[in-house]
């Protein structure tokens, strides 16, 4: 029974994390047409910020004297800080809030930096630039020990340690899903507003949009800042939920999975992300379950990777619009409806 509960916690929390990532990718790629293949870098920005700050802030608040190397002792001290948080919920929430804000700002700044090449480069050059930047960021995290513990990783204190036993896990689900809901609502609201309309106009015909007054540089900057801040928030939640941050976890495969979810669900339609993430998690968990029942002469994780690669190719080939295709969205659709003759009538629809 407890296993089923933990499984649900894991699914729920990861759904939230991936929904935030997909919502940010949908905003950038689905709405504005910038395929952000550096997504994992912004995700890592959030997680690394937590890795670098949470345990340090925690020990400082708890008044614990740090002895020894950061690399070897961070796990130990994060446990000590967790114990402190168990009786000091306010301090725990303070650490969470501070790391969240720092991560979001860090992500947004990185996004603005990334918008500089995004304005000027064709998409494939941009993609390799962002992938490489993300890889260098990962390599830095992996090799510079004082940052996030290098190859050992870093411990992250449990900010929900003060919750009664058994409810803590539900707390993480709630945390993850509430941030996911907020991210998705931001996406939905923007998508179905004049702002989203301008984004899709730029995506469809850049020159015509510029001629009609859209400052394309500014839009790209704003969207990449917002999208990257969102991805960083996903990183924060992920780091706290996992209880540690390991640089090598943030490899380009994560970006690929987010692209898969957005394209599979239907890029250009906010509802697509809800479905895309769900389908991915369902498939991923099913494959994970199969591991226990099937014995293969090779690692089934590779089969899963192959499977997801092929799925994306099949979607691109046979249903490029995804499960839920894009459709023109009216900002205030309710006010306008057709009469029987197909003419427009300007009054509230029944």
């Amino acid at each position: 029974m407890i296993n089923l509960f933990l499984l649900l916690v894991d699914i729920g929390t990861m759904y939230g994390v991936f929904l935030i990532l997909s919502a940010s990718m949908e905003l950038e790629y689905g709405e504005l047409g910038i395929p952000n293949f550096g997504k994992v870098m912004f995700f890592a920005a959030g997680a690394f910020a937590v890795g670098a700050l949470a345990v340090r802030l925690g020990t400082w608040l708890a008044g614990i004297q740090w002895q020894g190397e950061f690399k070897t002792k961070s796990i130990l001290y994060s446990t000590a800080v967790s114990n402190y948080f168990a009786t000091h919920p306010l301090q725990a929430l303070l650490v969470f809030a501070v790391t969240l804000v720092v991560a979001a700002v860090f992500g947004a700044i990185l996004g603005i930096v990334a918008s500089y090449p995004a304005i000027r480069l064709r998409e494939d050059y941009l993609a390799i630039t962002l992938i490489a930047a993300g890889e260098l960021f990962r390599i830095f995290g992996r090799n510079y020990d004082p940052f996030i513990g290098g190859t050992m990783g870093v411990g992250v204190p449990d900010i929900l340690a003060w919750m009664p036993p058994g409810t803590k896990e539900a707390g993480y689900i709630a945390l993850s899903l509430s941030f996911a809901a907020a991210s998705w609502l931001i996406l939905y609201r923007l998508s179905t507003s004049p702002f989203g309309r301008a984004l899709r106009a730029i995506r469809d015909e850049e020159l015509a949009a510029a001629t009609l007054g859209k400052d394309i540089v500014k839009y790209r900057m704003k969207v990449l800042a917002l999208g990257s801040a969102m991805a960083a928030v996903a990183g924060v939640i992920y780091a706290y939920y996992m209880g540690s941050v390991l640089a090598d976890d943030f490899n380009p495969l994560k970006t690929f999975l987010v692209v898969l979810m957005v394209v599979l669900g239907g890029s250009g339609n906010p509802y697509g992300t809800l479905v895309g993430v769900a389908v991915y998690i369902f498939l991923d968990r099913t494959l994970a379950l199969l591991k226990h029942y099937i014995i293969l002469p090779f690692d089934i994780n590779y089969a899963a990777m192959l499977f997801f690669g092929v799925i994306l190719l099949l979607v691109l080939m046979y249903r490029p619009e995804g499960i839920i295709p894009e459709r023109p969205l009216l900002t205030i659709r309710a006010k306008f409806c057709r009469t029987k003759e197909g003419k427009l009538e300007k009054r509230l629809c029944k």
Partner: peptide
């Protein structure tokens, strides 16, 4: 471009 990324993963 996305297809080529999928081919890389596969």
């Amino acid at each position: 471009m996305i297809a080529s990324m999928a081919i890389d993963i596969a």
